[in-house]
Design a protein around this nucleic acid. Structure first.
Lengths: 346, 346
DNA sequence: GTGAAAGCGCTAACAA
DNA sequence: TTGTTAGCGCTTTCAC
């Protein structure tokens, strides 16, 4: 890198006794054919010198770096990667991109934060494209999307599609369908008093799941009781408080549907503290299917989100977008199905 | 990026009626002084054209990209970012580097995996430096460090220092001291039968904490009983099994020290399942001080690891290393203190 | 089939 | 004080 003089393709060319162009053709398998014999000479020289091309020089020349940005746009950027969603998606993106010889540059950002720094990055030419995880649809998010549009950097949204007018491709999952199915399951089990623990309602996902819950009630003719809907946070304390409150109702719930698995753990904890058994006294269903869901006793009945597949699809769409030169390929909105997983808590 | 022609410093120079060099001097505040008047003209042209420099071109020229790699070298790279440690460190690194106008490129890697791809990256000139999180000290890790050394890319290790012969700077924390203190605390509370739930013993940290536990016993003259040491996994099921087993001993533990907070949750769960109260019947202490530690009831007594500070220090050391041109500045081994936090479980 | 050379956008040494 | 220009290392058009 430093100190040592860098080996360039010129060194390789000299040693192999060919032109620099030839070296390039060999390395890239084109765009011009090369004789096997020259090929061999070049390869040997490369090995001998331990030559490694400079991405910078190549990038400058071809205007492409094979680096993709992951923009995690969330309320608390300091917690961004400790969140199950972002961590799982980041992992999935990284793996998929690695298999395509691409790298991932992470860029956490607070919702509402100044967009200037990100714009500098996007306009710097460092990134071939970005995937941005969206969690809501406020004006701040619109502003972000607006800015990205202006930079002309290929972009795919994840989890929440941006406003349609931006025309970005997006891959999300069937949040409402999952909530509908989970609730329907509980109804089918004979439950008529079903509590719903909302997550932080600033998140679109929390609202969509609530909508699915409500739609299921209506669909099956079960009365909606707002006393059975509670919470506005992803924190354990909030879930416990909600449970405590609900169970004091004259007609307490016989089942509880929580907007996330981590919420469910607290729900169960509080239920047990009150001496109630899960699922015998109160059935519980979660959402997410986090890793620990199968580890708990009993294992969680929940809704599986295909986060890994989401990351993979996002990568595929993005790479596609980048390759179709006039990247005006129609925006694709993919909504992956979720899967209700019946395990031990309901 | 594409489609639109890129605005270059030449455009700016023309519009401002100055030389391209002048543009560079203004943008970089040097290395030559510029008259305020010209400065103003250039700045205006930049704004007018909405000019953004190309990192690629700049990088090629100055051999510096302001991109740092984060190599997460662990057993299961597919789980890498869902781990509390990596996620927290990544966040900390990213934030610190952002404040220094640097970017982070993530590179998860399985222990023992082929090093070829990483070498290509390191030799590509894309990265100014790397911080690598180490969790053990096997030959595989040595091989990794060997390779990094050969590439001459500035490197700082995190959590575990590499073998001294590589001479890398490292920032870790006082694992053994923390375990010693936690155990000593329990002894001071009058406990003489203290169980220890090991994590996955392939991790150096699991072994070091065990050593701290043992040292504390010896130091305070408490008998060591190997029947009180159990486990070889970070999974909840393992912790529960250990607790179940220990509590059946003729002389069961009155306190349990677990190698991680997540383990503690399972310990408590199992204890409660057996109808025992925490901390009245059995005191419990964890390690890590994860976010949920304060959210549980009762809140966890645990050992706080300054992961955020570790990330920051690593960044500072690395940036320092990069800037001291002849980066042969002596390796610095920093061991940050941990903090025993007495809360509700012991 | 192969080589020479232009140029990607920038910085900094050299001139003036 | 400011302008000119030679590269950084690579790809690819153009000429042979």
């Amino acid at each position: 890198m430093r100190s040592k003089k860098r080996i360039t393709h010129l060194d390789v060319a000299k040693l192999a006794g060919v032109s620099t162009a030839a070296v390039s053709y060999v390395i890239n398998n084109g765009p011009r054919p090369t004789s096997p014999e020259m090929r061999e000479r070049v390869m040997r020289a490369i090995r001998e010198l331990d030559y490694h091309p400079s991405v910078l020089a190549r990038g400058l020349r071809v205007q492409q770096t094979n680096i993709i940005g992951f923009i995690a746009y969330d309320y608390l950027s300091t917690k961004v990667f400790t969140s199950f969603y972002n961590a799982t998606i980041l992992t999935s993106l990284t793996m998929r991109l690695k298999s395509l010889s691409h790298y991932v540059l992470v860029y956490p950002m607070d919702i509402g934060q100044d967009l200037g720094d990100l714009e500098i990055l996007l306009r710097s030419g460092l990134l071939d494209g970005v995937v941005v995880r969206l969690v809501e649809d406020s004006p701040a998010t619109d502003a972000l999307l607006e800015m990205i549009t202006a930079t002309c950097v290929p972009c795919v949204c994840i989890e929440q599609p941006g406003a349609p007018r931006f025309g970005f491709s997006a891959v999300s999952y069937d949040d409402q369908g999952g909530a509908f199915e989970a609730t329907s399951y509980l109804i089918a089990q004979g439950h008529r008093r079903i509590g719903y623990i909302c997550g932080d309602m600033r998140y679109l996902t929390a609202r969509t799941r609530l909508a699915g819950y409500q739609r299921a009630l209506v669909h099956h003719g079960v009365a909606y009781d707002e006393k059975l809907v509670c919470g506005n946070s992803w924190l354990p304390s909030a879930a416990r408080a909600c449970v405590a409150q609900m169970m004091e109702l004259d007609s307490p719930p016989t089942a509880i549907f929580a907007a996330s698995d981590s919420l469910v753990f607290s729900v169960i904890e509080e239920l047990r503290r009150q001496g109630r058994r899960v699922p015998e006294d109160v059935a519980v269903v979660g959402f997410d299917d986090i890793e620990l869901a199968t580890e708990s006793i009993p294992p969680l009945t929940t809704v599986h989100i295909p986060l890994v597949e989401i990351g993979q699809r996002a990568v595929d769409l993005l790479i596609d977008l980048i390759q179709t030169e006039d990247h005006i390929s129609a925006a694709r909105l993919e909504v992956l199905p979720v899967e209700f997983v019946q395990r031990g808590t309901a």
